[in-house]
Amino acid sequence: MAHYTIDTDDDDKYVEGHYGEGLTCPLAARSMALSALPDMVRDRLPNGDRCTFRAIVRDENGMEIYTATLMLVGEWKVIRPPS
């Protein structure tokens, strides 16, 4: 039976997942990767106006089989207020 893990990357920190998570279905791993992205954003709001968050599904051989990416982009539409 195949096993999968999910790594995360938020531009500052790459965290490798553990195969002990019990993921044996690639579709369940995909679903978990997608659901991890909002939590990643809540846990680490960027200092600037741009940040990329990724959740990567790897199989038991370490091969990346799926990547979910969320790009956060903030843009001023008026004159930027003083800091």
Rank of each mutant, 00 (worst) to 15 (best):
L27T: 12
H18V: 11
H3F: 11
Y19M: 13
F53Q: 00
P26T: 12
G62I: 07
L37Y: 09
A2Y: 09
D10N: 15
N47C: 03
A55K: 01
R80F: 02
A33R: 01
P46D: 15
T8F: 00
K13Q: 10
E21R: 11
R44T: 02
L34P: 01
M63S: 04
V15M: 07
Y66M: 10
R50S: 13
E21G: 02
L70C: 04
Y14N: 13
Y14S: 11
R42I: 12
R44F: 01
N61T: 11
M63I: 08
H3M: 11
V41D: 04
R54V: 04
G20F: 03
L34N: 10
C51Y: 00
I56W: 05
K13E: 04
G17S: 02
Y66L: 11
A29E: 13
F53A: 02
V57I: 13
R44K: 10
D39M: 13
G17P: 00
D7H: 11
F53P: 00
I65F: 03
T67G: 02
V15P: 02
Y19V: 09
M40V: 05
A36K: 15
A29N: 03
D10A: 04
L23M: 12
V57M: 09
L37A: 01
R80K: 15
L37W: 03
R50H: 14
S31M: 14
M1A: 05
N47R: 06
D10T: 06
Y4Q: 05
D43M: 10
C25W: 06
T8C: 03
A33D: 05
T52C: 03
R30G: 04
V41N: 01
A2I: 03
I6E: 00
E64T: 12
G48H: 03
M71Q: 11
D12L: 11
E64L: 04
K77Y: 02
D9C: 09
Y19S: 10
R54G: 04
D7C: 07
E16C: 04
R50D: 15
A36W: 15
T24H: 15
D43L: 12
R80N: 06
G22Y: 14
D39I: 10
K77M: 09
S31E: 14
I56Y: 07
D43Q: 14
A29V: 09
Y14K: 15
A36Y: 15
D9Y: 14
A36I: 13
G17A: 00
P46C: 12
N61F: 06
L72D: 00
L27I: 08
L23E: 02
A29S: 10
